[in-house]
Write a protein that binds this DNA or RNA. Structure first.
Length: 323
DNA sequence: AAACCCTCCAACCGCAACCGC
DNA sequence: CGCGGTTGCGGTTGGAGGGTT
């Protein structure tokens, strides 16, 4: 065996990320932009993670503009067709769905779509036999297309109950941090934030609304607010406008475009493009200081037992990343 | 109620591509 | 051109939570 895995180095932490680590990383990225991951562990005090882990955490979880939750039929259709055309090139597929990470798409494919296709193959062996004289790609594509059409004609509202919900974007990412952050110290050290309930894309579970927007929206739904306290409406508005810009920013950078070549001739086309100078300039003065976010996250999460400002936030406030 | 099984997803690992020297 | 370092990608896994027996 040759080299050691980068994360085998002593002092390098592995496993689920804590809210504290997320905040450290997000704060660093906000200041320096994504990229140069090698320098992240050395320049961030208290973040004992390898560069790989940092990059992954950012691209798959913290990056603004990430859409989480159930896949829409449109997204599903795109994935199915792109997978049929491109194979398991998840990063490339993800470049067509800039709000989704390659990891998410890969997981969704492995846990849902592959199964669907298998069922489809069993249910309609005719398709495969009919296509047996064609290329494998065509066969697969036909089947996949069939699966997609099947989804179209079935009860989509039953299959995809989130259709009417705005998706939570980066605001959710941040609020997720906040939510975990506000848990008891025991919880904070227990590793990754608890998942907000299992999301069953194919089910019509009654908890889907909460699952769709488990943070701001969920909090606003009047449940157990527990030990959470919140920022003022103004701070929240500012934060969300920041998130909105960040989301659009990333979205623009992410779109496969010859005008935005990848920073280092990159193979693949991962959405996590670095902030280029031009874009930085365009955003320039409009970018609110990250210190506000830090203050919000770390500061006096103040208003202990404070009022639930989020109750005033309309549900669609989470839909900050309209592309 | 407990044990077991299943599902899902965040995170890890190994490898390949790329870059700078 | 070769080498070492860095980054990105895709396959796989660990474990939490939900469902079933």
């Amino acid at each position: 065996m040759g080299r050691l895995p980068c994360c085998d180095k002593v002092g390098i932490k592995k496993g689920p990320w804590t809210p504290e680590e997320d905040i450290i990383l997000a704060s660093y990225i906000q200041e320096h932009g994504p990229g140069n991951w090698r320098s992240v562990p050395t320049n961030t005090a208290g973040l004992m993670r390898c560069s790989k882990s940092c990059r992954l955490r950012w691209t798959n979880y913290l990056r603004p503009g990430i859409k989480r939750g159930n896949f829409t039929p449109q997204e599903e259709g795109m994935i199915i067709q792109l997978q049929g055309l491109l194979g398991n090139r998840w990063a490339t597929i993800a470049s067509y769905l800039p709000q989704r990470t390659d990891n998410d798409i890969k997981n969704y494919w492995n846990t849902h779509l592959k199964k669907k296709i298998k069922q489809q193959q069993q249910a309609a062996p005719m398709i495969t036999s009919m296509a047996s004289d064609s290329s494998a790609a065509v066969t697969t594509h036909q089947i996949m297309f069939n699966v997609h059409n099947d989804a179209k004609t079935s009860d989509l509202h039953c299959l995809f109950p989130r259709l009417n919900h705005p998706y939570a974007s980066s605001a959710e990412n941040i609020s997720r941090l906040l939510e975990a952050w506000m848990k008891s110290p025991a919880d904070q050290t227990s590793g990754k934030p608890k998942q907000e309930g299992r999301q069953q894309p194919g089910s019509s579970s009654s908890s889907n609304a909460a699952a769709a927007a488990p943070t701001f929206q969920g909090a606003a739904s009047g449940g157990d607010h527990g030990n959470c306290s919140f920022v003022s409406q103004d701070e929240l508005d500012s934060l969300l406008s920041f998130e909105n810009m960040s989301s659009n920013h990333v979205a623009i950078l992410d779109m496969p475009s010859p005008e935005h070549p990848k920073h280092h001739g990159g193979h693949g086309s991962h959405p996590a493009a670095p902030i280029d100078a031009e874009m930085e300039e365009r955003l320039g003065s409009h970018r609110p200081p990250f210190s506000m976010l830090e203050t919000w996250l770390l500061g006096e999460t103040a208003n202990e037992g404070g009022e639930d400002h989020l109750a005033d936030v309309p549900p669609d406030v989470c839909s900050v990343a309209e592309f």
